[in-house]
Amino acid sequence: MQQELRKNILEAAFYVGLMALCLAVIVSTVGLPESLREPLGSSAVPRGISVLIAAFSAFLLGQTLRRIRKLRQAASASPESEAPAASGHPVLKTCVIIAAYAALLTWPVIPSVITTPLFLFILIMALSERTTKNICWAAGLAIVFGAGLHYLFKHYLFVNLP
């Protein structure tokens, strides 16, 4: 139940975030010039779509808040709480590793021929058990696919990798 409650709170935050985004879009269209040839101009569609998104988000937020209230009531009625799920947040770890790799591509301190296989090795190891067998497999895959894909994209597909 706690997990369900957490999920609903996150969902509510997602809709609030979308409404904030809509507000930012509407504000950013204020300075756009009006069109002389047709009544809509550059700003009408972004504003209209933002209003729609905000309305849908508000509707879904209302539903989610009602669910949260019910879940809270049910949780207070049955005080024994579930043990938190054991999780190493693999998605979060993956995002951090990808962001680090993207940062190294954006600000190339180390050449990508090194960072690419390294990225693959670290990501595989972050997602699998640290056994000798897995380390060997990860190293092999990192060298074959990491270096191979780097070579393919850089030299055959002419991608500007640092």
């Binding site: 990501l123 990860a138 895959l141 894909l149």
Partner: peptide, 14 residues
């Protein structure tokens, strides 16, 4: 998946 997904993610990024 722990072996396949990283390779797919790398293909995506490149």
């Amino acid at each position: 998946s722990s072996f396949m997904m990283p390779v797919i993610i790398l293909c995506c990024l490149l």
